[in-house]
Simulated scan of single mutants.
Amino acid sequence: MTLFLIVIIAVLAFEFINGFHDTANSIATVVSTKVLTPRQAVMMAATVDLAGALIMGTSVAMTIGAGLVDVSVITMPAVLCALLGAIFWNLFTWWLGLPSSSSHALIGGLCGAAVASAHCDWSVLHWSDVDAAGNIIGIWPKVIMPMLIAPCIGFGVAVIVMSILYIVLKRVRPRFINMIFGKLQIVSAAWMGFSHGSNDAQKGMGIVTLALCTATTSGLFDDLPSWLSFLRTPEMKVHTWVILLCGITMAAGTAMGGWRIIKTMGHKMVKLQPINGFAAETSAACVIVAATHFGVPLSTTHVISTSIMGVGAVKRFSAVKWGIVGRIVWAWVLTLPITCLVGFGLMRLAHALFTF
């Protein structure tokens, strides 16, 4: 039971870190364009993040909990090692000020820990499959393909939206445009925050549910007192209290802010005006909400970053500081393999030190 409590604390730590690490996804542009102060932007993001977590269902949580690895090989130590790998990468990239993917960090850690738990049997990973309900699951369709396609879609949609706005508003005075889109950007930033909460909070929900299911099937909860019977979860089902717990924790983390990453995305990568921020946020949010609907654990970081690149490229290709973009892309590329290795290494170390 002690190990289970440690796992739950680690999940909440991951969600909290995810909140302040990915805060920049939804508010970097609205802060950089000076439409809102950092404090106002963070408080708004925390509120809409929570709303997104509570409203958008649990399809992404089910993908994380049961759609990527064989749950029969998952143990409490494996879940803990996966979380520690993801937390390590999130804190490391936050310290560097790089907007990396919390989603891929968690998925990489989970895959590495699962393989180590199964004594290096790679067949425990669901590469591409169909579940009992006929839904497509697996790492390739739910993680790798979206990782490659979603940033391109975010870039393309942002280019289209920005181009249309330039054409429609080319005869309008810049002062009037800044005034109008200064207000509209508050709406687009809130929409972006909502989409972030709808997708990212579910990842913690999936891990909590996986931990509850593992504890129940392994017999850890056999002697629970009646007042704790709500913890028993014999099958993958996300409880309401899990949704509330993860949503509130991530909102609290969001309220802490993530200024290093905000500086990179909102100031270093490209100089933004309110109309640019509106186009980037609206484009990214639409892509993320669509992914959430289909149960895809998308990287909100990837999508908003490429959307910002897209609006910057329309403004002027050289306006995007491609050197900074190169550093960001390297962080994206390395996230899955590094967290997979960390999760694998921690699980192998656990096997060497403990008997379970």
Rank of each mutant, 00 (worst) to 15 (best):
V69S: 08
A66G: 15
S59F: 11
I27D: 04
V60Q: 10
V73C: 11
A53M: 09
A28T: 01
S72F: 00
R39F: 06
M62D: 14
V69W: 09
A28I: 00
Q40C: 06
P77W: 03
I64N: 13
K34S: 06
I74G: 11
T47Y: 02
G52S: 09
M62K: 15
S59I: 11
L36V: 07
M43S: 01
P38L: 06
D70P: 08
T75P: 05
C81K: 02
D49W: 01
A51F: 12
D70N: 15
K34M: 02
S32F: 00
I74Q: 09
C81R: 01
V71P: 02
G57N: 12
V31G: 02
K34I: 01
A51K: 08
A28S: 06
A53G: 13
S32A: 13
V73I: 15
V60R: 09
A46E: 02
A78W: 05
T33I: 04
L36S: 08
V79Q: 06
G52N: 08
A41M: 07
M62Q: 13
G67I: 14
M56N: 14
V30W: 01
V71H: 10
T75Y: 04
A28L: 00
M62I: 15
M56G: 08
T47C: 09
I55D: 07
A53C: 05
L54P: 09
T29Q: 00
P77Y: 03
C81T: 07
I27Q: 05
L68Q: 09
V71F: 13
V30G: 01
S32K: 00
M76P: 05
T47K: 02
T47M: 10
V48R: 10
L36C: 11
L50Y: 13
A53P: 03
L50G: 04
T29L: 00
A41D: 08
T63S: 12
G57R: 13
V60S: 08
T75L: 09
G65N: 13
D49A: 06
V30P: 00
T33S: 06
L54F: 11
M76V: 13
I27L: 03
L80R: 01
T58N: 15
I27W: 07
A66H: 14
L80D: 07
K34E: 10
Q40V: 07
I64P: 13
A45K: 06
I64S: 12
R39C: 01
D49H: 10
V31M: 04
